[in-house]
């Protein structure tokens, strides 16, 4: 009995130490960021501190003074991030489910095509996309920022792999025998089963959209009222001319907070670790 307990204890001790070290490595730089947001520029240049300063209101005023409209940026970023997250997760799951469950002609080619699309580098695609949207007159509007997320090959790829592990065809058969329509099956059975995976992808999609810079730069750069937070933060850096570090750090901190909130909300669903395999062997 004793040796087992010792084993348990030492295992847990090692684990927790490891976890805490990692915790510090992750948190320290971010904590510094938040602290710097409350200090004056001189204090920041003078060195690092773990104690918050009192300059936060001042830093906020500096940001306002430059005309950096953070609430507007927040609003734009939120609209785009929420829409793209919802669209990409829902439709990618739909598409992955279709590939998984149905047997239609060209299915293999289609999936292969999707996989190939995940391998396309984003960058030059951007210039081509920019040209194309310019020709179509769709620049400086939110449509090209949001609609394309319906076709998200990477997310489809993830869900296909995920459903391979998580989805049991017997479940679907059972529902069909019960008389459910295909749509109902998807919405009422597949979606709930995929919650952990869906929320995982949702977080990634949200963060990806929230922090995106190059895409918004080219698509909505010309309309200052549509600028998202990253564009606005860059403007702050440019206007503050690298001299108002306090304001810059506060800006960074403010961009960070909404995604932390979204993450805390979503992570509950992942953490609850729904064990799948609802069909016992």
């Amino acid at each position: 009995m004793d040796s087992y307990r010792i084993k348990q204890f030492s295992y847990k001790f090692i684990c927790y130490t490891f976890l805490i070290i990692l915790f510090l490595i992750c948190v320290l730089p971010i904590y510094m960021l938040l602290i710097n947001a409350t200090r004056t520029t001189e204090a920041i240049n003078a060195g690092f501190s773990l104690i918050p300063g009192t300059n936060i209101i001042n830093n906020w005023n500096i940001i306002q003074g430059f005309g950096i409209n953070i609430p507007l940026g927040l609003r734009n970023s939120l609209i785009i991030a929420i829409s793209t997250t919802f669209l990409s997760v829902y439709f990618s799951l739909l598409t992955a489910y279709a590939i998984n469950i149905y047997d239609f002609k060209f299915k293999k080619a289609f999936y292969g095509f999707i996989l190939a699309m995940t391998l396309v580098p984003m960058n030059l695609y951007l210039i081509g996309f920019f040209q194309y949207m310019h020709h179509l007159g769709m620049l400086n509007s939110l449509t090209p920022m949001i609609l394309p997320s319906i076709a998200a090959p990477g997310t489809v790829f993830f869900f296909k792999q995920y459903l391979d592990s998580a989805l049991v065809p017997e479940l679907i058969q059972a529902a069909r025998i019960d008389g459910a329509t295909e749509f109902e099956i998807f919405n009422k059975i597949v979606l709930p089963i995929s919650k952990p995976g869906a929320f995982t992808m949702a977080i990634f999609a949200f963060v990806g959209s929230w922090n995106a810079f190059m895409g918004p730069l080219f698509i909505i750069g010309g309309n200052i009222n549509l600028h998202t937070l990253p564009l606005i933060m860059q403007r702050l850096q440019g206007d503050a001319f690298r001299t108002d570090f306090g304001a810059i750090y506060l800006g960074m901190a403010i961009s960070l907070i909404p995604i932390i909130i979204v993450y805390s909300i979503f992570s509950k669903y992942i953490v609850s670790g729904i064990t799948l395999g609802s069909v016992k062997e």
Binding site: S92, L94, T95, Y132
Partner: peptide, 22 residues
Amino acid sequence: YWGYIFIAPFIIIFIIFALYPI
């Protein structure tokens, strides 16, 4: 047949927005 219906949104959006740039 439902397979086609479910993948339709993906294909439509892809053709509209991604095919030309790529």
